[in-house]
Structures are given as structure tokens and as C-alpha cells.
Design a protein around this nucleic acid. Sequence first.
RNA 1: GUGGGUGUAGCUCAGUUGGUUAGAGUCCCAGAUUGUGAUUCUGGUUGUCGUCGGUUCGAGUCCGAUUACCCACCCCA
Length: 424
Amino acid sequence: MQTPPLPKGTRDFYPESMRIQNFIFDIWRKAALRFGYEEYEGPMFEHLELYTGKSGEEIVSQLYDFKDKGDRHIALRPEMTPTLARLVIQKGNSLKKPFKWFSIPRLFRYERAQKGRLREFFQLNLDIIGTESIYAEADLLSAIAYMLMDFGLKTEDFSIGVSSRKLLNAYLAEIGVSEVSKVYPVLDRRLKIEKEDFYSELAATGLSLEQTKKLDQFMDSKSIEEVEAKISSDESKAALDEIKQLFKTLQASGAGKSITLDLSIVRGLAYYTGIVFEVFDKGKSMRAIAGGGRYDSLCEKLGGDKVPGVGFGMGDVVLANLLEERGLLPSSKQSLDFFVASFTNDMDKIFEVAGKFRKLGYSVNHPLSPTKLGKQMEQANAQGAKVVVYVDGEKAPAGGFEYKVLSTGTLGAGTLEEIAQLKV
RNA sequence: GUGGGUGUAGCUCAGUUGGUUAGAGUCCCAGAUUGUGAUUCUGGUUGUCGUCGGUUCGAGUCCGAUUACCCACCCCA
């Protein structure tokens, strides 16, 4: 038969790519743990209703779904938040709140692949459940800033744009717009479409020219002062106060340099209730690195009690593209502490000595069949070994070994303990 | 779902106005070198020229269709 190809929008992870993937996951995980988030996981597929309940039926065309043998309608998870909400609802009041959780789920979306966007990918998710406090947002946003810096990015390499659904809602009410569900999708595309289309599409949702004009100007606001001058209602002021506090706290946390007010950020779906944010590389040459917001009514929508929550997702694809472009990815080459070789192909001795080094915690490899020494050296070099240890060198001291440091070509002999010190 | 670009060796690519047996580099394998790798030299393997059809004495090359990938649009949790 002909070998079937790699499915559309998926990736193979040969060892070289897997090392890069692990590098990213390690930094993600360490950063999340450093901020006190606990890791959780869920199944890779869920009942379809978990997603339609939150986002409506349209979502079905954009995910992988199937009927299982028990005629259950199943979907491969396209995002993690509904699973998280399910976990929260199931445990009910027994979870001590607030709590901070993270996960690195493998996600699936049925859509056409393009740069920065695949059908199967990974996404770091950080969420804080059980508090309406704006300091939860502050915690998440500083975690983002710190972890991006862990990757070697500078604060001026990325920007975290912050907006607020609460503020936008209040302002819409202020200018007399009540039917907001149709308005949001248009607002979300505001910067992508022509000005006249923006006006005509909003007119189609029932907005007057004057309302649209005000809204357009409002969303152009670049500073808190600018917004302050445009709003008047108590609701708007309360929403803006929240943003003020958030910015102040982020300054104190050290993440302030990357944060900007950007009211053009709306985000597609309807369940966000407060702060929304998106992270971009400077220059916005790529898709969003991360995005998220507050979803205080999600659990309620999915059949549980009302539990406030806020969180974000950061995909591996765009991030890896960005790090690659900036030269911040590590070498994808294998590395080993020691390679154990033998002049006489004494395989048993090789296994014995390799075992001794491994017991000390070092990574060790050796030939798997009798091979002449030149080949063994080639293998050691190809596998990134730092030191080759010869098990049967004639110049070795009693109980010790001859060795060669590959980077310098230095030959020597010493005891196991002395050789162990060479690795670094 | 819509539009554009590209398909030649495992990888990166060359291939003349259509002409005979399709090339280079790299990778891989072996040897030079039986107690020493990465640098050097020598030799070797690798192809349904994406697929199907058309034009032609003759197609990797021209035409049509199709398919895959890439890029953009739609959408973006």
C-alpha cells in the first residue's frame, strides 16, 4: 500500500522538534508553578453539548465531532475552558476558593491550516476560579509577562493589550445601545474592515450614525485619561476604576512596561464579562501569542452555580514561530553526558560501566552491537556526548578508565569519580 | 467555503526556444584510518519529474483537469 500522508494541519515531532517542544513546555510549567498554579488535566474528548452550550451550534462546524459506538455525540476538545468549568461544577462547594490552576492541553480545531494556526496544537491555560477581584487579572497578566521574559523576550518585544467588556457594555448603554449581541462581532472586526463597512454593518444592527461615530472614537482611546473624558455613567466609571487599579498593580509587579490600554480588543465570543486581553509581538506581525479574559457566568451557563473565573490561553505554534524568528530556541541536537566505548567490543563490560555512571544520575549511551572504534567515536559525536569513556584502556588506573573529552580532544585516565567530575 | 503561489532524490534546489540515458549540493552508507570522532579525500545508494488526460515524431518543459502543501480571506474559543 501507499503510505498515507501526515493529516492536514498536524505535525510530527521527530526528536529534534520534540526537544524544542519540551523546552517550551518546561518554561511554561516552571513559570506557572512559580506563580503558584496547580496542574490539572481532563479527557481529550467531551460530550459535544459542553461546547454548544457555551458557544452555540455554529461551533460544530469548527470542531472534530463524531458519534461513538454508544451513539453519544462526542467532540475532540477545541479548548480547555469548558472542561475546566465542568471540573469546577462537579466538585461544587468542596473546592476551596479562590484557586489557581493550569494545564497544557492538546487541542483540535477543524479549520483550514495556515501560518500560526493548525488543526492540532497545544495551549497553555492559566485560570483563576472563585474570585471577582481585579487582582486575579493582575496575577495572570504578570504571569504572562514573566514567562515571556523567561523565554528570553524583552518587555519591549511584546505588548499586552487590555480592554474591558464591562466598560464597553457600560458605554454602549450610555449612548443608548441595548442590543449588544449583534454589535460585538462587528466591533471585534473593526480594525480589519474598511471604515465605511464598519459604519454600514453597525447601521444594519440598528445603530444610528451618531452612535457609531461615538463608538468608533471611544474604541480609539489610547489612554485612561482619554477614556475618562468620554464617559459619564457610574457603571462606566466603575469599570474604568478597575482598569486603573489593574494598571497600577501591574506597574508594582514589574510587568507594567508591556501593558497598554487597547479598547479595540473585543474578542469573538459572547461569554466574556469583564477584562479581556490579547498579547501580540511588537509590530503585530503575527497572530496573537495569547488571549483571555473574565468569564463570570460560564459555569452558570453550563448548568452549575455562578462561579467567577478569569483565564487565558497561549498557543505553542505562534510562540514557537516568534522564538524561532528571534533566535531564542535552543539547539535541537541530542546531548549526552557520557558515551561508553570499548577497544575490544567487550559488550558486557560496556553495560557494567554504563550502569555505574547512570547510577550517579548521568545520561549515558553506548554501542548496541560490536563495532570498530572509529564508528563508536562517530556515534558518540553524533549523539552529542561530552566525554567518551573507554572500558578497557591499557593506561587506565586500577578500577578506573581512559577517557576523551570530545570538545577539546583531550585524552586522559582516571577513576570513575574523577571522570564523573569532567562532565559539565 | 473563496482567492493566489508552489510541487524534480530523505532535505535544499538547478534543468536552455520542447530533443536522446534527469543533475548538483546536502544527508545517509562504505573505504582511506584494525587504539580514537567532528575538519580532509575516494567511492556508492536514492527518483511513477505530485496524479490523470491533451497537443507533439518527441513533454520534467506547452495546455487542461485534479490533488497535496504553503500564503491570504472567512472564522478565530
